[in-house]
Design a protein around this nucleic acid. Structure first.
Lengths: 246, 246
DNA sequence: ATCTGACCTTGGTCAGACCAGTAGGATGAC
DNA sequence: GTCATCCTACTGGTCTGACCAAGGTCAGAT
């Protein structure tokens, strides 16, 4: 004759997870805090320890907490690598998503470069300049050149001084690095690609230096578009100065 | 004199997680597949069932698999809600990040609207038009108006037909909904805000219809900028036609 | 005052058990 | 022979209680 479900709307795992979620979101559990032991948590919530462990493990893979052996469970600053994990899984099962992810990267970078024009400091400019020099220096190397390219774009995002944009860009770029190498090899067949790479990045750099958001955005978009164009032409077998004769 | 660690490099949870991760990434486990029962998995890997459950639960919160009660565990298409969870946690602990998240939202939407100009179909246009009508109809209501506003922007992103952009926008927008309401109340004191809201969205709509990416992007950015401006003026106590006299 | 070691607590794991439904085969009725 | 029904094996969901190894703490010895 008693209530089948007294107060608890969620059972077991959901209960514990919701409990911790609430504390985390409300701010009563802050990064650095060490939460109570698994046994105590289990007893407080009226569930068994394995269930508590499930919830803690779930928070761990989400990068919210860290379980330290024989020490306890502590709240951490949300980590980026979670997104990386997620996207890795997501991409593994939908390879056709690459172009789509690229669109998101373009979105992030174009916004970042606008912010960078307003917020970048001397240190950012210097770092950008070094990245640009590195691109020129490694123009003939596939691997090093790709890394230099990546570093340049990453520096732009860093110069936006936006944590969120940086996090997102890191996650997205991480996914794209795999395809980056093959892309670079693809366009190596075009001699003109080298001047394109150097000149484009230089123009982007100059636009940021000039603190001209519109020009920077437009130049960056054009840069991406030209890269796409090269890849498209490579796919149909063209090389510089000669149309594919299919 | 015996091996402390026979062959297994990872213990317990890591072992199971790595095992499943490998299968997932290699593609031998594809979405829709039902994996073996927890008991069998435990026995195969030489671990206990609670450990297996930890690993499965971890994959669940990552949106990789779905545990169906009394049915089994099946591999799912990577789900969006994971990002939502993550961002929610991440933001909860760094409230000052709101403006920063807004920048990311602008980034996503501006890229989305460009794609929308190229990819949107009649159905998208119709939905946009309905959203626009809803904005006009609910212009005097705080809650309904906010929802209509949100719906309009969401429709734009949907019209981009980009899964990644949609996912990111959903996550980011979810975070911003909390602050959305207060923002809307803040600007209610400006009578001119109503015409701004309606006219701006209409201009955005028209730019998409015209399939003009540049104009759409610019108009959307302006829309966001004006919103910021209103909030800035509200903060210093101004109202329409009267400068704050502090 | 310092050092040392026992003890308590922590996470890490396991084994076995029970419940509640589901799926599919066995069984019975038509 | 076909169909509806029932039963059993199996699934996830959870609990209990236990053991291990190692970090922290603090009392007692030096």
């Amino acid at each position: 004759m008693e209530l089948t479900r007294p107060v608890e709307s969620d059972k077991g795992f959901e209960k514990v997870f919701a409990f911790l979620r609430e504390r985390l979101l409300a701010g009563s559990l802050k990064p650095g805090d060490r939460l109570v032991s698994e046994r105590e948590l289990a007893s407080q919530l009226g569930v068994s320890r394995p269930i508590v462990r499930e919830a803690l493990r779930a928070l761990t893979v989400l990068g919210i907490v860290e379980i330290r052996d024989r020490i306890g469970t502590v709240v951490t600053r949300p980590d980026v690598s979670v997104l990386n994990d997620f996207f890795t899984f997501a991409l593994a099962q939908q390879a056709d998503m690459l172009d789509d992810v690229m669109q998101a990267r373009v979105a992030i970078e174009c916004q970042a470069i606008r912010l960078a024009c307003a917020r970048a400091g001397i240190a950012d400019f210097e770092r950008l300049q070094r990245a640009l020099a590195q691109i020129e220096a490694t123009i003939d190397e596939a691997d090093a050149g790709g890394m230099a390219d990546f570093e340049f774009h990453r520096t732009i995002v860093l110069a936006s001084h936006s944590e969120t944009l940086t996090v997102l860009h890191n996650s997205l770029a991480g996914l794209l690095t795999h395809s980056h190498r093959s892309r670079r090899e693809l366009v190596q067949s075009f001699p003109s690609v080298k001047t394109y790479l150097v000149d484009d990045h230089r123009r982007i750099f100059e636009a940021v230096i000039a603190r001209d958001p519109e020009r920077a955005d437009a130049t960056l978009r054009k840069h991406f578009a030209i890269g796409d164009e090269y890849r498209r032409r490579a796919l149909v077998g063209e090389t510089d100065g000669r149309k594919a004769s299919r």
